[in-house]
């Protein structure tokens, strides 16, 4: 593909070796960010648990009790539906947050990128890593809460760990070009915010894939996030092991876009730096 540039393989290798060379700094920057993020709030990290909790309660009250959504009833009313919701909504919220923050990250760190020779991708990687940690912690809290209420968490849930990693790699692929374009068009961020809202409703986050009429299922298959979110449901709610095909799809969804986006980004990176 022409817009990848001539040396796309070299640029991917270079980018990976850059990541390896800067690994210590990446860890250090992530730690600084984790420390500074909540330094002026009383509840600190709790907000990462509280805000999904509020959202889940809203959906449970609306669809489980007031509107008596058919699926919600089938899932076992309030708590069962809440369990279904949480397993997909927590990764979705982290996905949305990573995408939105990531799009703005180069602009937000312009003052640093203008003054130091650090590679600009370092800040993108840092954001991906931090949200991955958020996702791990968020999921751990969710599992702990449901274990306390007596819910039996299936062992198949260990599969969510590689799914989370693949999901964040997929987001990274989206973030690289978006963050670069956002330098020139600040509208990109607004656009991303709007698209994310729309995207949530075409992804089976608060409803199961089965209730979508057959003729729309194909559209769902072309939505990468529906594969990720369905995997969480399969692993946690239904307690299934994902088959080889499902893993292959997730893997390709992470790797191919990343390859394309790194090639594209390394072609325009220096121009972005000039214009920050």
């Amino acid at each position: 593909m022409f817009f990848l540039g001539k040396n796309c393989f070299t640029s991917v290798v270079q980018s990976l070796s850059l990541a390896w060379n800067y690994r210590k700094l990446l860890v250090e920057l992530s730690l600084h960010e984790l420390r500074s993020r909540h330094s002026r709030s009383a509840l600190g990290f709790m907000w990462h648990i509280l805000s999904p909790l509020v959202q889940v309660s809203l959906y449970v009250i609306a669809f489980g009790y007031i509107m008596q959504f058919r699926f919600a009833m089938k899932a076992g009313g309030g708590l069962g539906f809440a369990f279904y919701l949480c397993s997909g909504l927590i990764p979705w919220l982290v996905f949305a947050e990573t995408l939105q923050r990531g799009t703005n990250t180069l602009v937000a760190h312009a003052n640093i990128l203008q003054k130091t020779s650090l590679p600009s991708c370092l800040f993108i990687w840092r954001d991906i890593v931090i949200r991955l940690i958020d996702l791990f912690v968020g999921y751990a809290v969710f599992v702990a809460l449901f274990t306390v209420t007596g819910k039996n968490i299936p062992f198949t849930m260990v599969q969510v760990i590689p799914v989370m990693v693949l999901q964040q790699i997929f987001v990274m692929a989206l973030v690289f070009p978006l963050a670069a374009i956002n330098i020139f068009f600040r509208d990109t961020l607004q656009l991303v915010k709007a698209v994310v809202r729309f995207w949530m409703w075409v992804t089976p986050v608060i409803y199961p894939l089965e209730i979508i009429p057959e003729k729309y299922r194909l559209i769902m298959a072309f939505n990468p996030m529906s594969h990720f979110i369905s995997s969480y449901h399969e692993a946690v709610y239904y307690g299934h092991w994902l088959n080889g095909k499902a893993w292959l799809i997730l893997f390709l969804l992470a790797v191919i876009p990343t390859f394309v986006s790194i090639c594209f980004f390394s072609r325009i990176e220096s121009e972005c730096r000039d214009n920050l």
């Binding site: 600084h32 420390r35 500074s36 993020r37 002026r40 003052n111 640093i112 003054k115």
Partner: peptide, 8 residues
């Protein structure tokens, strides 16, 4: 001042 993180 560039790079100083006021929260730390």
């Amino acid at each position: 001042k560039g790079g100083i993180n006021p929260n730390l």
